[in-house]
């Protein structure tokens, strides 16, 4: 049994909530509250994301030397300086080589391992953890280990290559031809596990009935892979492609550890766009040129994303 008064107030509250729900006053009140809730996010994003985004263009139009405190307007000069710098083009080329050299094996290996893991085997989660481990390892510490593996005289990589394939000892870190491959090997080791985990989730999301139907129709393993798995995984591949390319474009930490001080390796053989940027902005403190390089990086990434979005419309097959 409920007390009478409770019922009355219950109905009153219901009425009130109806008015609140559809009244004009409610919308404005909710707007006020919403902005109170959003205030911290707006202040921090405003200060450290929106404002600097526009300021980056302003900075790139100014020269910060010889006087760091009083930049002078130079228009497009910083961009011209960068474009005329042979080292910039080399760093861009190295970056592209690193992106292609690491992303394609990462995705291929990632898919291959995910396919193996997706079969009926035991200890699935053990294997998944093992492959994923390099991805969670702090990149600085992981790069230190590779620094040791790449040692010319006592490094294990040379020893194993020599034992297995009779390769002569390679000076990975001081020979310009091997500097970038060294970074690529490290990149493949570190980031393949991420692709494995995402691909595995994608594979597990594919409806088994497709395979059953194909088997009934007499499709062999390759046909099932080619005409079911691959098309149905195309959104995953597309996602991984974008994420990996963008990530690889920004490679920095690994190179910074292998060749300390952002020197870019022997004869700048491992100078990538981010190392070039760091060297310009925080080595020489030519902030204007540094900002110009960073803005160029932004444009490159933006264009890559747009192109991939375009292509995805033709290639990606959504279930």
């Amino acid at each position: 049994m409920e007390p009478r008064g409770w019922r009355v107030s219950f109905r009153e509250r219901l009425n009130l909530s109806w008015q609140e729900r559809y009244g004009r006053g409610r919308f404005w009140r909710e707007t006020l509250y919403a902005y109170i809730y959003l205030l911290p996010a707006l202040v921090i994003l405003g200060t450290f994301t929106f404002y600097p985004f526009f300021k980056a263009f302003w900075i790139s139009a100014h020269r910060y030397y010889p006087d760091l405190l009083h930049p002078s307007y130079v228009g497009w000069d910083n961009y011209l300086t960068v474009f005329k710098d042979e080292l910039f083009w080399r760093s861009l080329w190295h970056t592209v080589a690193y992106v292609l050299g690491s992303v394609i094996p990462q995705l291929t290996l990632g898919l291959f391992i995910a396919l193996l893991l997706n079969s009926r085997i035991r200890a699935k989660s053990f294997f998944r953890t093992a492959y994923f481990l390099p991805y969670v390892t702090p990149s600085i510490a992981a790069s230190m280990v590779f620094l040791w593996l790449y040692d010319r005289d006592y490094g294990l990589l040379n020893y194993i290559l020599n034992k297995l394939f009779h390769v002569n000892f390679i000076d990975w870190l001081n020979n310009p031809s091997f500097a970038l491959p060294a970074v690529i090997i490290l990149g493949i080791w570190k980031y393949t596990g991420f692709n494995v985990v995402i691909y595995l989730a994608g594979l597990q999301g594919i409806d088994r009935t497709y395979y059953e139907a194909a088997e009934v129709d007499g499709a062999n393993a390759w046909a099932r892979f080619r005409y079911i798995t691959l098309p149905l995984l195309s959104p995953t591949t597309f996602f991984l492609f974008i994420i990996s390319i963008i990530g690889a474009f920004k490679v920095f930490n690994e190179i910074y550890v292998l060749w300390p001080g952002a020197t870019g390796g022997p004869l700048n053989a491992a100078m990538t766009i981010m190392i070039y940027f760091y060297h310009k902005a925080f080595g020489e403190y030519h902030l204007g040129e540094g900002a110009a390089v960073a803005n160029i990086l932004f444009v490159i990434i933006f264009v890559i994303t747009l192109i991939q979005m375009r292509l995805s419309r033709r290639w990606v097959f959504y279930q």
Partner: peptide
């Protein structure tokens, strides 16, 4: 903002 690489914001944020 997810389209903006954090690297682009380093110089302006450093100044701020």
């Amino acid at each position: 903002t997810m389209m903006i690489p954090g690297e682009m914001l380093l110089v302006p944020n450093y100044l701020t």
